[in-house]
């Protein structure tokens, strides 16, 4: 299937990359969301928005099994994520890239070593632990990934000496090294200055588009949500309260989504709110 996806001309690409049905999650006795149904098509770019604590991160992390769910099913790339364990789960995760708000690199290692870690999706053993024990082909591929994010000249620099924006780009290079079919990103630009944030989002969007990868990102920046997605999903009151095409949406209108009192959306958790119609 991954071969088919690398060459969309073959035409056997499954129509949906992600399908959630009746997904519910409760932390202790605090319900985060209940009964989420959502289908995301292959190659689609989806922005997830919503107030703090509405469960955006929890949802995203459920997509690759970093967070467990209480009920429902999460199907990603044709596999039922939460039914997988051990090696099978690792093989699925290998196909899903994840960019966090913080870069989460190994700070004492150089950029190149961190990018080579991305290869752990495909193989294990000492060759993928650090750049100095990696085979020449892996080092070249990692360097190409760094070049892709514009940091080839920083390959041998320790990542704790890089800026926040540069570190986030190294994390993206590590994700590229993974050769993922889906890219998940949880507020990848949130700890960056506006300019670096734009660059990172631009990069993620471009990387997903050029290879037909599915992109799902969480953002509090409505400009980013509109500019770098095909579709915008809003979480509120424990469910999906907004699901619109990005071409219909305008940043100012989306801001209105947050102004909505929580109680109102909580009554109708899964009602589709149309920002355009409300305007």
């Amino acid at each position: 299937m991954s071969a088919a996806q690398a060459n969309p001309a073959l035409g056997v690409v499954p129509s949906h990359a992600i399908r959630l049905a009746g997904v519910a999650k409760t932390f202790g006795d605090v319900p985060v969301f209940s009964g989420i149904d959502l289908t995301i098509n292959t190659g689609e770019a989806v922005a997830i928005i919503g107030s703090n604590g509405t469960g955006k991160s929890t949802l995203l992390r459920a997509l690759n099994g970093l967070n467990p769910i209480d009920a429902g099913s999460v199907e990603v790339l044709g596999a039922s994520v939460h039914a997988l364990k051990g090696d099978a789960l690792r093989r699925l995760r290998a196909r899903i890239g994840f960019v966090f708000q913080k870069h989460f690199l190994v700070s004492r290692l150089c950029a190149l070593s961190n990018v080579i870690h991305g290869m752990q999706a495909r193989r294990s053993g000492p060759q993928v632990w650090a750049q100095w024990c990696a085979p020449a082909a892996a080092r070249e591929e990692a360097l190409a990934c760094l070049q892709r994010v514009g940091l080839a000249d920083k390959a041998m620099q320790r990542v704790d000496s890089l800026s926040g924006g540069q570190s986030q780009r190294v994390a993206i290079a590590r994700m590229l090294m993974q050769r993922p079919e889906i890219i998940l990103a949880d507020e990848p630009a949130a700890s960056l200055d506006p300019r670096a944030g734009d660059e990172v989002m631009e990069l993620l969007f471009h990387l997903s588009r050029e290879a037909g990868r599915t992109l799902v990102f969480v953002s509090h920046d409505m400009e980013h949500a509109v500019r770098y997605s095909d579709r915008i999903i809003g979480l509120s009151g424990g469910g999906i309260a907004l699901d619109i095409s990005a071409t219909e949406a305008r940043p100012q209108e989306l801001t209105g989504f947050f102004a909505k009192p929580a109680a109102e959306t909580a009554d109708r958790p899964r009602a589709v709110y149309s920002g355009a119609a409300a305007a």
Partner: peptide, 24 residues
């Protein structure tokens, strides 16, 4: 964080220990 990032890549336990925990 870096341990979780490697876990989300699908790294093995030994991979995580040797490429993240020990360097840290």
């Amino acid at each position: 964080g870096s341990r979780e990032a490697l876990a989300s890549i699908g790294a093995t336990r030994s991979g995580i220990v040797f490429s993240s925990v020990i360097p840290d």
